[in-house]
Design a protein around this nucleic acid. Structure first.
Lengths: 207, 207
DNA sequence: CGGTGTGAATCTATTCACAGCA
DNA sequence: TGCTGTGAATAGATTCACACCG
């Protein structure tokens, strides 16, 4: 047993947890082959990944869904509720504002920001909205840990810096810009155009 | 020079192209260090990645942006316009319907589908909309190559199978479900909850 | 010199093969 | 016997070091 989880394994484990949470019968036993079908990951790899988790008292005859979820959450520290905000309330940002799946997954959407005051005043939502120039103040006051950047590309780095100044240390970036942040900050990027290109390139490769 | 591009390199190259396209001064020369700043990838790795591209007549003194883009597009077959559709016109799907960035990036949004007929009739858009049960017929007729799945989880696999039946061979899946497809089909998944979890786990890891 | 391009070395992840438990 | 768990083997990606070009 190692004390370090390789990042690809860690990513698969995160996804495994999400998929297990969707299983209704959480008391049910599940074996690595079933997990393989559910996740698309080879059973071998599933077992290897699980072996990176500390403290799983394996019954050697499959896993119980609930216990596996707990074990993953303990190892990856995914138990509490993480305070989150969205910057940029255009089409994408406001679609996410309305998304009901955050809280069940452990993320509390605590604030929204936009540079357009009209947007803030007109939008109907229970989540408190603020002008973008208040990010430092409000995000810090609200103790936000994680920020979503859904602004136009040219504002991405400025927005990012404000979030970092506010004490946010995880950022999900929907722009295609590279964000420059201090060492300790974790940034992940999502771009569907990027994914399209990858799909196209892989397809061309397969002839 | 190899004839095969490792997938991580291919993904970085796709992203490099997107970033280069945003550079206004495309006639400008750019060196691997500048690319490194722009992409967040080490200059070493940038050069290695570019070395996987065939037919780059290196001037040994930096690259010209336009030529590099062309070279990437030739190698990755990213030139033409790819016909695309969205299935699921909820918040996320309709946000994407309105997104103006597809065409500039080489993707023509050619149809939208939803299982709710009301949605289709009420939505204002220039893109033709159809009921979900028409996917096979319409997506085939319109020669759609790439499908976006933005439906609720429980409809994901059914939607996927319809798209595949319609001849679509690339799928971008916004649900957290694992899609089961024939060998030749390329699927990529996007899930922001998954990304959140990864960010949280990585942050916990860094203390 | 200040850059590129690339084989070789290192580091990392995946797969395999099998011992051992229920 | 069927499944887990894991060291060892393989495959793969990144980094390094340096020859070479403008």
């Amino acid at each position: 047993m190692q004390t370090f989880i390789p990042q690809p394994a860690l990513e698969r484990i995160c996804r495994l947890r999400i998929i297990l949470l969707e299983q209704v019968e959480q008391e049910k036993r599940i074996d690595s082959n079933e997990i393989s079908v559910l996740t698309g990951v080879a059973a071998n790899t599933v077992r290897k990944d699980i072996s990176y988790l500390e403290g799983y008292k394996g019954s050697k005859q499959g896993y119980t869904v609930a216990e596996l979820i707990t074990c993953i959450e303990e190892n990856l520290k995914l138990s509490g509720t993480v305070r989150t905000c969205i910057v940029g309330l255009g089409k994408l940002g406001s679609a996410m504002l309305d998304y009901p799946g955050f809280l069940p997954a452990g993320y509390k959407l605590t604030a929204g920001f936009d540079s357009d005051i009209n947007v803030i005043e007109l939008m109907k939502t229970d989540i408190p909205l603020f002008p973008a120039y208040d990010i430092e103040e409000q995000a810090e006051r609200l103790n936000i840990e994680l920020g979503i950047i859904a602004v136009p590309s040219k504002e991405a780095q400025k927005t990012c810096s404000r979030l970092v100044a506010a004490g946010v240390n995880g950022i999900l970036n929907f722009t295609s810009c590279t964000l420059h942040v201090p060492e300790k900050i974790v940034v992940r990027n999502i771009s569907f155009l990027h994914e399209f290109d990858i799909i196209s390139a892989l397809l061309a490769d397969k002839q």
